[in-house]
Amino acid sequence: MSELKIKKGATSHSAYELRNPNANVIEKHTLAVVVDNEAGVLARVIGLFSGRGYNIESLTVAEIDHTGHRSRITVVTTGTPAVIEQIKAQLGRIVPVHEVHDLTTEGPSVERELALFKVSGTGDKRVEALRLADIFRANVVDSTLHSFVFEITGVPEKIDAFAELMRPLGLSEVARTGVAALSRGKD
C-alpha cells in the first residue's frame, strides 16, 4: 500500500471498517430496508439485485406504518464484504428508500421466520409428528383425521430442522414467510 501511511478511521464510511474489504469470504447479511410503500418499490429493490448480480436468500415485505405508508423489506443476502457494502450503497441510492440497516454488523439482532407445514398420515407417524411438533413448540392450526397443519416460528435453521424431521412422517406442503429481523435493545 501507500508509503504515506494514511491514518485510517477518519470517516463514518465503511471503508474504515477493520475487516479486509478484499477478502474473498462469502458472508451472509440480513438487511432491513425502510421504503415508501408506493407502486413498484419492491420491483426496484429486486431489480437492483438481479441487474447487478447480487444474491437474495430470502425476502419479506409488508407495510409497517399504514398512515405514513412505509414498508419494511427484510432481505438476507450473501457476498464478499465489498459486495455487501456495494449492495447497501446501491439500496441507499433508490429514491423511495429511507433507511438501510445491516442487522448483521450493527450489533445483536433477533431473526424469526414463520412457516406452515402440512403433514398427512395415520397411525404411529401421525402420533410421532404431533410429539415432535410439541418439542419444537409448533402449533396445530388445522387438523383432519388424516392431516395436520403446523405453524412454527423460529430462526430459519430451526425451521429447516423441523422440515427434515417431518419429511419421513408425511410432509406434503410447506409455506415459509422468509426472515423478519429487528435489532436487540432499546434502539
Binding site: 500500500m1 501507500s2 494514511i6 485510517k8 477518519a10 470517516t11 464510511h13 465503511s14 471503508a15 474489504p21 478484499n22 465489498a82 457494502e85 456495494q86 450503497a89 446501491q90 441507499g92 441510492r93
Partner: peptide, 17 residues
C-alpha cells in the same frame, strides 16, 4: 456525491462523500 461510487471497483484510503 454518490456513496455507491466509493469502493465500487477500487478500494480507497480516504473516501469523502
Amino acid at each position: 456525491i454518490d456513496p455507491s461510487s466509493i469502493n465500487k471497483v477500487i478500494q480507497v484510503d480516504i473516501p469523502i462523500i
